[in-house]
Amino acid sequence: MISLRSVLWLCARYELVLAVRSRWLQMFAVVFAGLALAVASAGYILSGGHGVQDFSRTAVSLVQVVLLLVPLASLVFGGLALTPDRGAAELLYSQPVPRGAILIGRMLGVWLALAAAELIGFGIAGLVVQSQAGLDGLSRYGALVITAVVITGVFLAIAALLASLNPGRRTRVLAAALVVWFVTVVLFDVAVLGIASMLRSGSASRLLISATLINPVDAARTGALLAIEGTAAFGAASLALLRFTGGAAMAAAYVGLSLAAWMVLPLWLAARTLSRADI
């Protein structure tokens, strides 16, 4: 009987190999590095040379890029890679090991590949900032890198769920992935703001703050910006958030909990669905 760990590792390596050879990943790496580079150099120019650009400012500008691009890439790439198809997946899932382990292993492989592409992008942008503004705010830049890697995992887990719900139907998985992306990145926030504008201010504040913690994109953005800029990130709203959660440590815990839940729950559902599916 092959051990669970080596199943995970084998599947992860299998996906990593596939990913490295995939045009999708290569494209993502190039696009991500290009955008990060553009933001890093544009940020320096936009500051008007008044010394207000450093790693922290770049990290803040990159938060927007990361939270638009990384969920999309993770959903699309995860959907493509993890949808069980005829052939390889049939063979793989017929092996005498838990299907959940295979799924998690494959997801880990994709995660490693995407994270590697992101690290290269951050590294290139980092070199540009570093050459122009020095190393100040590096730890905050690190917070952004971690945010990107975590949010990759969250959306890969969601992609895994979408994939295992639609075995053999990649187009449907991709369509669903795009819907999920649009809802989490734009629609959810617009809806929340719309509802909040109709409520009284007390309940509206509670709704807005809860919403930022529930939606993984909002949770990641809020957490990253607060980590990078402190309470200056959202002005008085930061203080409202901290009072609502009961302090900075609790706010961090809520953000972490939300992201962890968004990673574990879809993955668990995906594994359950897959183990019952007829592939």
Binding site: R13, V17, A117, Q130, G137
Partner: peptide
């Protein structure tokens, strides 16, 4: 935090190395 500090390419290079290393490991296997 707004002043310039000593230049060192270490940390960004480290990111590059980890990323490249991961990809290379995938290719080599």
């Amino acid at each position: 935090s707004l002043s310039r500090s000593v230049a060192s390419t270490g940390p960004p290079l480290l990111l590059l190395l980890i990323g490249g290393g991961l990809l290379a490991a995938g290719g080599r296997s």
